[in-house]
Computed example of a mutant assay.
Amino acid sequence: MKKQVLIIFLLLISMKSFACSCECNWNCRFGAISDNQEFVALIKVIEYSDFLEEETYGYDGKMPYSMTVEVVKKYKGSESRKRFKVWGDNGILCRPYITEFEVGKYYLIAPSKIENDLDDEQNGDYDFFSCWNDYLKVDYDKKIAYGEYSWWRKEITLEKFEQKLEK
């Protein structure tokens, strides 16, 4: 019996790690990702919009599954909406959890566009990929973005970012 429990436990652990095990093959920091993504913007998180039905271990309350964001400044792309949804992880999608984003806070984003309707997710919504640094937290008052911008840079002013993106 103990052997069967151990085997089941090991299978469950290996399945979970497989679901979101990934490596970055080269440079997956924000500077490189934003150069290659179609849409890049400064956004503000307006609200958590959709929630997971089941309880999430280690999280009190309903876990947010999507957030509505408002574009403060579009740096590139054809996105014309002022507000849209960004979807997070439900435990198996290899995305960051929406709880990593705070309502009322600002972020530089270089998200991927969702191209197929899936449950509540709609074609044209966006998501992030856990293996990339496709968003940075922004101190809007100081106009500085913080995080893995490049191999050696952990912060960048919004002005400097805009200049680098235009090159």
Rank of each mutant, 00 (worst) to 15 (best):
G88M: 00
L52Y: 09
F129W: 11
Y75N: 09
K73H: 12
I13N: 02
V138P: 11
W26F: 15
K82R: 12
Q163C: 01
I156T: 05
E53V: 14
K44N: 12
S150D: 15
K142A: 09
K76E: 09
P111S: 04
V72S: 06
R95N: 01
L93H: 06
L42E: 14
T56F: 10
G58Q: 09
L136N: 11
W26I: 10
D127L: 03
G124R: 05
E70C: 04
K154R: 15
S80F: 09
Y146D: 08
S14M: 02
I114A: 02
R153V: 04
E23R: 15
F30P: 11
E162P: 00
D120E: 04
F39S: 14
N27L: 13
I33N: 10
R29W: 11
P64E: 06
K142E: 13
I156M: 07
C28T: 15
S112R: 15
G91A: 03
D120H: 05
G61I: 08
W152V: 08
K2I: 09
S21P: 01
Y57T: 15
A41E: 13
K137H: 09
E79Q: 15
Y65M: 10
I114Q: 00
I8A: 12
D50L: 02
D139A: 01
N116G: 02
G124C: 03
F9I: 05
S130E: 11
F161R: 01
D89Y: 00
C24G: 12
W87P: 00
I156F: 05
E70T: 06
L165A: 02
L52T: 12
K167D: 04
W132Q: 10
K167W: 05
L118A: 06
R29K: 15
P111L: 01
E79S: 09
Y149D: 05
V103M: 07
G91P: 05
I109N: 08
L10P: 01
K82T: 11
K167I: 04
E23A: 11
S150L: 06
I13Y: 02
K73I: 07
S112D: 08
F9R: 07
F128Q: 02
E23S: 12
I114T: 03
N27P: 09
Y57S: 12
V103P: 09
A145I: 07
A41P: 14
Q122G: 01
S21L: 05
C20K: 04
K73S: 11
P96Y: 00
S150K: 14
Y48G: 00
Y75R: 13
K143V: 01
Y126N: 02
M1I: 06
Y126D: 00
A19F: 10
D127R: 07
K16H: 07
I13R: 03
G104I: 01
F84K: 10
